[in-house]
Amino acid sequence: MDFWSWVLIVVAGVGIPIVQAIGVSNKKTTMEEKLKSLPDFSPTQKIMGNNGDTGLAIDENRKKVVLIKNGSSGVNLKPITYRDVLTSEIFVDGETITKTARGSQLGGALIGGLALGGVGAIIGGLSGKTKSSEKVKRVDLRITVNDTKSPLHDLNFMDFKGKKDGIVYKSAMEQARHWHGLVAVLIKTADNEDERQERIEPSSNVESSTQTSLADELSKLSDLRDKGVLSEEEFSTQKRKLLS
């Protein structure tokens, strides 16, 4: 192989990664611009995945989350509420290393509903064991949401081989843990809201039942008055007792 052939190989080896990096950068910019056009959403925190295919944004004031996907048909934005977020998992080379899931009764029912829809095996992840290899190729965050048609959203933080003690892997894991922690806070917030709702609903039911009983008693008194069993004075007296 002559000198110029070697030169072409070297140039190609350097140029291809640069072109790929520019392409990813452009995809991230496109997702950023699309997010700006979304009404009633002001992201307080956002991130675009390492490969430029997906992103995630949070509006803490409105309690909303936007799942971002960049596909062949363009950028798709999927706004959801905190309560639609069911689980969050960090994957390293396809293995779950940590997971947070909704713990309330309602949250558990939603997760169960997705499992019945045929995606339970996917939601469960893999074995949960970490690989002992010194090198890692991928680091991803997987979010499960309350949508039977598209329940999974994967956010990539690293997609090329690197050492576990290397800067790239450590940086990717730091970002993944940060966002996993944020989503875990959303899940906890939703659980707290569910618990408050569960405490409120019984008292609401009692109040509703009381109101129904009162209406029934008043109706019975009216019937007795109309039939002549009670005089108008007797009806008024009994009515005051019920309403007091």
Rank of each mutant, 00 (worst) to 15 (best):
T96Q: 06
T144Q: 04
V14M: 11
N51W: 07
R225F: 06
A215C: 00
K239P: 14
T212H: 07
S244P: 00
N70S: 11
G49V: 10
I200G: 01
S133D: 15
H153G: 06
K34R: 14
D53W: 05
P43M: 05
A101N: 07
D140L: 13
N61K: 12
F3M: 15
S203H: 06
I58D: 05
S88L: 04
N50D: 13
S244A: 11
K28R: 15
D159N: 15
T81A: 13
A121I: 06
P43I: 03
L141Y: 05
S209M: 12
I90V: 15
G55C: 09
G103N: 10
A176Q: 06
V85A: 03
Y82R: 03
T54P: 01
A101H: 04
N156V: 07
K46R: 11
Q175T: 00
V10F: 15
A21Q: 11
A115N: 07
Q175D: 11
K28M: 13
T54S: 11
I9Y: 11
G166N: 08
Q197Y: 07
R199S: 08
F91G: 03
T212E: 14
I18V: 15
S231G: 15
L116H: 09
K161I: 08
A176V: 09
G125P: 14
K227I: 00
S231K: 10
R138T: 13
G228S: 09
F3H: 13
N51F: 11
D53P: 01
F160Q: 09
D93C: 04
I68T: 08
V119H: 03
L186G: 00
K78A: 02
N205W: 02
I80E: 01
Q197T: 13
N26D: 10
